[in-house]
Design a binder for these strands. Sequence first.
RNA 1: GGGCAGUUAGCUCAGCUGGAAGAGCAUUUCCCUUACAAGGAAGAGGUCGCGGGUUCAAAUCCUGCACUGCCCACCA
Length: 883
Amino acid sequence: MDMEKVYNSKEVEKKWSEYWIENKTFSAKIDKNKKPFTIVIPPANVTGSLHMGHALNATLQDIVIRFKKLQGYNTLWVPGTDHGGIATQNVVEKLLKKEGITKYDLGRDKFLERMRQWINEAGDAILEQLKMIGCGLDWDRVAFTMDESRSKAVKKAFIDLFDKGLIYKGKRLVNWCSRCGTALSDIEVEYDDEKSNLWHIKYPLKDSDEYIIVATTRPETLLGDTAVAVSPDDDRYANLVGKTLKLPLSGREIKVASDYIVDKSFGTGAVKVTPAHDAADNEIAKRNNLETIEVVDINGKMINVPEKYLGLSVEDARKEVVKDLEEAEFLIKVEDYNHSVGRCYRCSTKIEPLMSEQWFLNVGEMSKKAVDAANEAKTVFHPHSWKKPYVLWLENLRDWCISRQIWWGHRIPVYYCVSEKGKRKDCKPIASFERPKECPCCKGDKFVQDEDVLDTWFSSALWPISVFGWGENENSEDLKYFYPTSVLATGHEIIYLWVARMAQFGLEFMKDAPYKDIFIHGIVRDKRGKKMSKSLGNAVDPRDIIEKYGTDSLRFALAQAAVPGRDMQISDESFLSARNFANKIWNAARFILMNLEGIDKLDEEIKPCELADEWIIAEVENTFAKAQAAYDTYNIDAVSRELYDFFWTKYCDWYIELSKIRMTSPDVSLKRQALSILVYILKRALQLLSPVMPFITSEIWQILNKDEKIIAESVFPKIKTSGFAESLEKMRTVQDIIIKIRTLRSEMNISPVVQIEALFNVLDDNKEKTAKENEGYIKQLAKISSIQFGKNIERSKNSALAVASGFEIFLPLEGLIDIEKEKARLAKEIALAKREVERTTAKLSNESFMKRAPKAEVEKIQARLNDAALKIEKIDESLKFLG
RNA sequence: GGGCAGUUAGCUCAGCUGGAAGAGCAUUUCCCUUACAAGGAAGAGGUCGCGGGUUCAAAUCCUGCACUGCCCACCA
């Protein structure tokens, strides 16, 4: 088998991503003998294309799925896309604009047709990209939030909630985006600080010279004021409560009300109350039975105001009103003021709170159930710190405005009975899958459907049940087997928008939370810590990274940075380092395969024959345990680091290097012996790495085991403790000797290729045994030609000294040594040892420490002191000897 | 206003059930030692944001404070 010197990701990736799909490696069937492990993908917007955030999210889920599969679970990861409501409609509207038309020119039906057509053309891009990065999704189960089955689920959920009386229609104050032309829910509004002014306006008392000054950021809505409110415990205004004021510019009479929400220390302590255009004012109005006057309509134009302001935009009206107030001497002063302004999360247009007839979902009970599920640890956040904000949000949730005045989406399945002429009758509206045949109250047979569509998040909230066919059969076998899902992986930006609502709907319709674990990962940021976004121009396209470094590198770099709940800064260096790791894996495999040439089939059972064998087996067991524990708690970053360290530092730098002694031995049985361990460890490492780096590991695995199952379908072997733990300590001794010699050589500038002799003055008999048994290791890795062991060995003037634990090591360096340099080096060493003696002595002479510290700790410190003292003694002797 | 997270080597970050400070990248020296120069060996570089406290012992636990970031809030 020929392997290229440098790992070439392109061919390998193409081969495997196609293989997994063609062979349905990740297609899941119900198997009652196996435990299911289920994930539903957060459905990306159909119009989207893969960005780093998706790549991270998908990689993490894929890692978990592949890992669980190796553990023997019947895993299922369901793919799909979201129709994306307003966002998607906006994209198509922009396309139309380029053609010089609007959606109204087309009309609803034609426009929707146009949208579907466009989605057919562009819609699969994101799924194709998920295939590209190797996602082990079940491609037989691709779902779309607006396909037939999902549409049924939406209708079913709506009708159910409607019939339970939880969905109702009403005229309420809502967040209105005049650009998108629709109402939005509370969480679809994003708040931003904006420089503005605080206008202080005089409101005169009726039939009096007295007045109240109010401070406001929205002078134009003054025309819709129906009261001025003050704090109940504000002495300044106590005598004015209940009195009548004359509204400036209009002369309309309004009352002075008192309400607890008013903060007497803010502004003037008096608030103008505009119930139709401010949420807080709306609450005040309810508590005080105030009238509601709408002065801004859904197009952002003034209505119900004196003629001169009628039809003006909010901005123009503000200018006019301020000018007029100033002229009429109502305006007292204008302050600079920063306050936060709500903006549409899809188009950033300023949100206008206004009264509008909308559908609402009463979420009170559902929220309680979701809170309980979190409190009873039926749903668990990773990291845990997200639970609190999640619960707080649910507890303070107001009814959800679920209707949108756009065309793209699930049309609300409510029908109104109308007369022959199309006039709506007084009959009760009917929620139904189909257009009703007959009105139950008037027997009429003519109906019109509600014009609005549902918030796109309504269908997203049903995702974990709708993907299993809940809309068609709420007792489907899939639901019974795969629901609730095992874990939901998502960034924190959609915890409220999506995660919380899935919990509510899952508990409502299935009596069970839709997922057990919630794995919250961070957001990918650029090198400078800025969030990646198209508009900032700092977005890194994962496809470029794949092109440059390979998919496994992309995945490994993301995995390594994925500390639960923390945002990550990622740059080219991260991918480069991951790419180097992939190459390291490739070359380790190449070394082994090279040596396997001409070797007959190795035994399955491994027979460790020497220290390094036992040691690497003990190490792989440790790594396995650590990685498994980290996988189970979604510490993918820890997994990656653990595996990196094991593979590179332990396996490559030590074990493979030591194995070369047997590889180059003329005795083929020795070579076979070492190879069997090399292959065994490589296979274990490949399996552990395969969830993170599926391509390269699949390829090597296949080259290694031509006839076996592919790695993705392999299962972890039951690893029982080998009992080689004591080899770790012995290996440490050997490594210490090797490192000490290498350091000495390096500091004395001895070329790494020159073979030299070594004298070991033994200070510890046990360690002598270990060193003697493994003399070959020391010779091989420290480039030593021969070792002479002994006691009280005299050093020669031409030698350098290293004190390892258990030995004085002399390297006779005839003609190579510079005595002065050696003395300086030893002086430095001795200084270090002296500091150690001071530290440890201080501890040991501390009575409290001796009395209270555990025995093992005291012994440890004592041992350190002994080592250091011995070192000083030996170096001292040496120095004296050198003169 | 409330909540959450962060502050550790030049940079990006681990370590935080308390017992001698770690990795990658960058950097210095040596090495093209046939798996890998996308590599190997060795080194330099840190009073772990600041102040208190608990403890024999604190990067790690508690408590203030500062700064940074994020989220929530009826900031007129």
